[in-house]
Amino acid sequence: MNDIDLSVSIGPIKLRNPILLASGTVGYGNEMSEHIDLNKIGGIVTKSLSLKPRKGNPPQRIVETPAGMLNAIGLANVGVEVFLKEKIPFLKQFDVPLICNIAASSVDEYVECTKILTQEDFISAFEINVSCPNVKDGGLQFGNDISSVGKITAKVKAVTKKPVIIKLSPNVSYISEFAKVVKEEGGDAVSAINTLVGTSFNIITRRPKIYNVTGGLSGPAIKPVALAKVLEIKQKVEIPIIGIGGISNWQDVVEFMIAGSSAIQLGTINFVNPTAAIQIIDGLEQYCLHYGLKNISQLTGSYILK
């Protein structure tokens, strides 16, 4: 076809293009495979997996907000055992890098999950979710605490040879401090950002619309915040960044790469337009062609501030 190279590296992780599908917005891949050819995308990040299955929060779990949505799913997932037995075999028919996202309520549980999953060769890397705002145990309790994030990074790295990405919370004053500790403890990359804490009330009943009271805000509404967080990390810490937050077209991807992302993840847009990933990959190729970029990776951190 042409010699545009869309491949990127996130530290040791090589991807055919920078488009990953974000945790919690692709399930375990099977439903998405009815819409897009998984062999064409950069990779899939699984729904957060915990050691045991989790039922998740009671309804109502989601509510739409201007250009976005709040969710409080509560990490509903099948657990690592069922994932390995029933979900991975389906994914193995595709040539697609699989990143396993792990959520846990204790440092030991993160380590335990990693130990079990690391034995599966099909898994390319881990993304450690220390930033879920919707569960009482674990989640943000870790994501808000620099020493916990450091400890989790170190302990998980100690039990796997696969690359470890830490998914950071935007609900902190300085996200770069967290990225710094991840780097110091041997983490291979950071994902930024998870959702922002938000809420919404029914003005007639005066009750929150979401059972959990607060939820995580995602979608186009959070894009400027996410971009600023990526830029902050890029300027302060030398660590590969996976940009996430409100990306819905190829222009957004270019913006995130300019701000410092090596790759990006698509989240909420998958719900609205399940074929977005493929359209975006095509758009990126056209962009590179038009502006004479041989490798899309040249974009990463190419911002000009003054």
Partner: peptide, 17 residues
């Protein structure tokens, strides 16, 4: 009925007991 985001099983937004 339920509030829904995706409508095809990927968001887990529409639970029923």
């Amino acid at each position: 009925e339920s509030a829904m985001a995706c409508g095809f099983g990927i968001c887990q937004g529409c639970p029923i007991e």
